[in-house]
Amino acid sequence: MNIFRITGDLSHLISIFILLHKMRTSKSCIGISFKSQVLYLIVYVTRYLDLLWTFQHSAYNSLMKIIFIASSAYTIHLMLNDFKPTHDPNIDTFKVEYLIGGSAILALLFPYKWTTAEVLWSFSIWLESVAILPQLFMLQRTGEAETITTHYIFALGAYRALYIPNWLYRYFTESFTDPISTIAGIIQTILYSDFFYIYYTKY
């Protein structure tokens, strides 16, 4: 576990905390894309299915996986129940069918192995790389975003961006390679880059 990996994971945890904190204190989910949140739940459930058989291998990984699935489900629960009146589907109009379809095609074409778990894992990696698009699209449509929503997107983007130096470090120290994660992670970081640029110039 290197500094980039741990900082990336912490950044992911912070993003979840920011999002839930924002919703609970403002008692609303204004500015949050429900579609992106559903995509993230699909990402975590399909990727962390291995909890069922690798649970005992790493307490750290298993705990984080449970936190990611649970917090994602809780976010959706809040958006569907407590804060439903503040959600406006009319500005959350990104066509996620293409993201899901494209990720499914890539997963079926290039998995590490043609097993259900590996294909679902690959699907989750590709889907995660584009899951922020409905949120960024919504941000662009509504113009000015709340500071807290902006911090959430930054922390979430920083998580995967920090995995890139982690993969480089692991390649040189332990000959670790994971081309699917690496390519998807680079695509994900590129999608965030415009947002990162605006964030840096603003804060």
Binding site: R5, H57, F176, T177
Partner: peptide
């Protein structure tokens, strides 16, 4: 160099 068979990342 083989892709990790065991997923040790998140």
């Amino acid at each position: 160099v083989v892709a990790t068979p065991f997923k040790d990342e998140l």
